[in-house]
Computed example of a mutant assay.
Amino acid sequence: MLYATLKLAITAVLIVVISEIGKRSSVMAAILASIPLVSVLAMIWLYVDTKDVAKIESFATSVFWLVLPSLILFVTLPLLLQRGLGFYLSLGISIGLTVIGYLAMLQVLKRFGIAI
């Protein structure tokens, strides 16, 4: 239980630090947020927990394919905000479109025989 709490604390601290940096510099926060910290931490925790490099390989490959549809959020959110939609509405629509993108990507990968 202590180990899970430590993992949670480290991950939460990183998110808080990035959001606090964002108050001062959106560029610096964007740079830090664009580094796949969550994925890197997940790979570290997965390796520490299992020592299974095949699981790490599978995870990294899956993340690669699913990063592509996640970009939908970063395209649609600013566009919707520029058009005057409120933040939460814009975020909700962007997340919805991203989920649709994930589902479409999973279908495309399945069609081409790429298992993730």
Rank of each mutant, 00 (worst) to 15 (best):
Y3E: 05
Y3K: 10
K7G: 12
I10G: 13
I10H: 10
A12L: 13
A12K: 06
A12F: 13
V13A: 15
V13R: 05
L14T: 12
S19V: 01
S19A: 08
I21K: 02
I21A: 00
K23D: 05
K23Y: 09
S25H: 10
S26W: 05
V27S: 07
M28H: 07
A29L: 05
L32N: 09
L32E: 04
A33F: 03
A33Q: 10
S34Y: 10
I35H: 03
L37P: 11
M43T: 06
M43G: 09
W45L: 01
L46M: 12
D49G: 02
K51N: 15
D52C: 04
V53W: 15
V53K: 12
A54I: 01
K55C: 00
E57A: 09
A60W: 03
S62F: 14
V63I: 15
W65T: 01
L66Q: 06
L68P: 10
P69I: 06
I72T: 07
I72V: 14
I72E: 01
V75K: 03
V75Q: 09
V75H: 05
T76F: 14
T76N: 08
L77I: 02
L79E: 07
L79N: 13
L81K: 15
Q82N: 14
R83L: 11
R83A: 14
R83Y: 09
G84C: 03
F87H: 10
S90G: 12
I93F: 08
S94V: 00
S94E: 10
I95A: 11
G96T: 01
G96W: 05
G96P: 09
T98R: 05
V99Y: 00
G101I: 05
Y102T: 02
A104W: 11
M105D: 10
M105E: 11
V108M: 08
V108G: 06
L109I: 01
K110S: 14
F112I: 15
I116C: 12
